[in-house]
């Protein structure tokens, strides 16, 4: 078979998949971008949709509330992904040691991740309840607080508590990938380091961490992209409150579309959020490429 016909065959075979992918992702995306340049609204009546160029975008990017929300979203992403990374690797290190009942721990650790986001959010909201939440009860009994506190009542604290709930749900994924990567480390490597005098921390820093950094970057990118678009956990736990303290960028998309029925404007917010996600992806990608080449 000649090279040309083999190449053509490749495209013929790929074509159905490309077609489906385009219909599901590319076309809706293009439609959203188109809408973002108009003043379209959600209405059952006939409407005249006008092209208004960048007006939606200028509005979005000069809206102090939205810019605040973007900052908040960056904070949420950085802290939650950071905590997931640290906690995930720590738990993986633990699960990599030999001890009785390790298999059991390894199995149940996946449970938080397996729970649907909404269920997780509802459960944590109950735990945080100011009057009968388990967190208040536990901390009071342990003597860490004097009286029942409102965890979701203060804007800054609420955001951190939502981050905790999100980290809880997602760290098992990071832990599993880290554990799988750790198990591919040749035993001799760690033994050699031990003989050379490296303590547990040095062994982790010099051998384990560099070894697992590849898969870790991949999973952390995934988590970053997801964290940046966070919506459901916020919607269920706080609806964006208190005092807009937990309103993230995605919330604005929801708001513009469903609450204010401005689809053109909503589309522009959506494109901004997607755009920033894309920048994050590219930055990570460049980081990995550089890391691989340097190795």
């Amino acid at each position: 078979m000649s090279a040309i016909s083999r190449s053509r065959e490749k495209w013929v075979l790929l074509f159905p998949a490309i077609l489906v992918l385009s219909l599901i992702t590319v076309l809706p995306f293009l439609q959203t971008v188109w809408t973002s340049f108009t003043d379209a609204e959600i209405t059952a009546r006939e409407q005249q949709v006008n092209w208004i160029g960048l007006e939606n975008y200028i509005w979005a990017l000069t809206d102090p509330d939205f810019l605040e929300a973007l900052g908040r979203t960056m904070y949420f992403t950085a802290v939650s992904v950071g905590l997931e990374g640290v906690l995930g690797i720590a738990v993986a290190l633990l699960l990599n040691q030999k001890f009785r009942g390790r298999w059991f721990l390894r199995v149940i650790i996946i449970l938080p991740w397996a729970v649907p986001t909404i269920v997780n959010a509802v459960a944590w909201r109950l735990i945080y309840h100011p009057d009968y939440g388990a967190l208040n009860s536990l901390l009071l009994q342990l003597g860490f607080i004097d009286s029942y506190t409102s965890w979701l009542g203060d804007p800054d604290r609420a955001l951190n508590m939502v981050i905790l709930a999100d980290v809880w749900k997602n760290f098992p994924l990071v832990a599993y990938i880290a554990l799988a990567a750790m198990q591919t480390i040749p035993g001799d490597l760690l033994k050699a380091a031990a003989i050379e005098g490296a303590g547990a921390w040095k062994r982790f820093r010099s051998i384990t961490l560099p070894w697992i950094i590849g898969p870790m970057l991949v999973v952390l990118i995934l988590r970053t992209i997801e964290a940046f678009r966070v919506f459901d956990i916020i919607y269920v736990m706080t609806r964006g409150g208190p005092s807009d303290g937990t309103k993230t960028a995605s919330f604005y998309v929801y708001q513009e579309y469903f609450s204010y029925l401005r689809s053109g404007s909503g589309a522009s917010y959506a494109v901004v959020v997607a755009g920033i996600s894309a920048v994050l992806i590219l930055a990570y990608y460049a980081g990995i490429r550089r890391d691989q080449r340097g190795a």
């Binding site: 009542g153 203060d154 804007p155 409150g241 208190p242 005092s243 708001q255 609450s259 204010y260």
Partner: peptide, 20 residues
């Protein structure tokens, strides 16, 4: 546009009640 008016009022009123 009541939904938006309400949303704005909610945010600012809540913030004031939180003593911000």
């Amino acid at each position: 546009s009541y939904t938006e008016v309400s949303s704005i009022l909610q945010k600012h009123l809540h913030g004031s009640l939180l003593d911000q």
